[in-house]
């Protein structure tokens, strides 16, 4: 199966949808890594390198947006969400400006660069900003649709993208993407695995493993972290009675937090999380890091077994 990183799909989508003359792309000296150079090659006049100055880039993006531009601003997720956090809040979210933050190298799958360049906090931080929409696509096909959706809605969007090449979860032919709506990938009645980003394909693998044990797991791909799809979560809680969340992010404040908030306020059922347990990452190969931090199909299976035991 051919693999593609979501950052790669992001660059291609920018080049594809970039024919709209209102679209401009900014980068902070990482265009070869964030893949905005794919856009730059096609539309050099609408690409602006701001240099290693992320805070400046975000506020410049805001200024361009006030002049009617649809602005994509890209850097690594760690710098976008934290170095430039207050600029995102005050220059973009408060005035609700049309800026899309293409945050690549999210999670620990950055690998060898280590904790300084990995991001386990960004969704928690971005979720708490009013007016912000957060999309964390699980494969190249979903990324293309996410970029299109980000262009179509007017306002701030945080696109959470990864470095690692991923297998395709979706099929081009029958794929439809609706912002704020989760996608049920597999039906099941015993437990629901709600996953985002690269944990989605691992959840499908986990569901196969569970099936072999006679456990029928539902799998939901949540691409839009905010606004979260309340309906699909509550329905899953009612029909399966137990939830496992799976995300390449701190257990605090990301997908797990968002799902838990929906559950406790609407239909409380037991929940177990496959996430990073409030620690920083470290250097290593992505697969080694997944093992170390439990971001594996095996751990999803284990948590599913545990949460089923908690069902009343």
């Amino acid at each position: 199966m051919s693999k593609i990183a979501t950052r790669e799909a992001y660059g291609k989508a920018l080049a594809e949808f970039g024919k709209d003359p209102n679209i401009v792309v900014l980068d902070a000296d990482l265009s070869k890594s964030t893949k905005t150079d794919t856009f730059q090659k096609v539309y050099p006049e609408r690409f602006f390198n701001i240099g290693i100055a992320e805070a400046n880039m975000i506020s410049i993006a805001a200024g361009m947006a006030t002049c009617g531009k649809t602005v994509f601003a890209s850097t690594f997720a760690v710098f976008a969400s934290m170095r430039a956090c207050e600029q995102i809040r005050n220059s973009i979210c408060y005035p609700k400006l049309n800026v899309k933050i293409g945050a690549t190298h999210a999670g620990i799958s950055v690998g060898e660069d280590g904790a300084s360049h990995q991001t386990v906090e960004d969704m928690a931080i971005m979720r708490s900003l009013p007016n912000m929409t957060i999309i964390c696509p699980c494969d190249g096909i979903e990324t293309r649709a996410a970029v299109k959706a980000a262009i179509d809605i007017k306002g701030p969007v945080y696109l959470r993208l990864g470095r690692l090449a991923l297998p395709l979860v979706h099929k081009e032919e029958d794929f439809s993407f609706e912002l704020g709506k989760g996608i049920q990938l597999k039906d099941g009645g015993d437990v629901t695995i709600i996953a985002t980003g690269l944990m989605v394909y691992k959840s499908l693998e986990a569901a196969e493993m569970l099936k072999a044990q006679g456990i029928d797991a539902r799998v939901i791909d949540i691409h839009t972290i905010k606004p979260i799809d309340k309906d699909i979560i509550v329905k899953a809680a009612k029909e399966t009675g137990a939830i496992v969340t799976a995300e390449e992010h701190n257990i605090i404040g990301g997908l797990t937090g968002a799902v838990a908030e929906v559950l406790v306020q609407n239909y409380p059922v037991p929940l177990k999380a496959v996430a990073i347990n409030d620690v920083f990452g470290k250097s290593g190969k992505p697969d080694e890091l997944f093992q170390e931090y439990g971001l594996t199909p095996e751990n999803i299976v284990k948590q599913a077994q545990e949460v089923i035991k908690m069902k009343k």
Partner: peptide
């Protein structure tokens, strides 16, 4: 606040950000 006050071209208050936004306006 640009969303609230007619004639205000950029929301400001957090120092250092307005001048960057103006660079964006000039660039556009």
């Amino acid at each position: 606040s640009m969303k609230d006050v007619p004639g205000v071209d950029m929301s400001t208050g957090s120092l250092g950000q307005g001048i960057s936004a103006s660079v964006g306006m000039a660039l556009a």
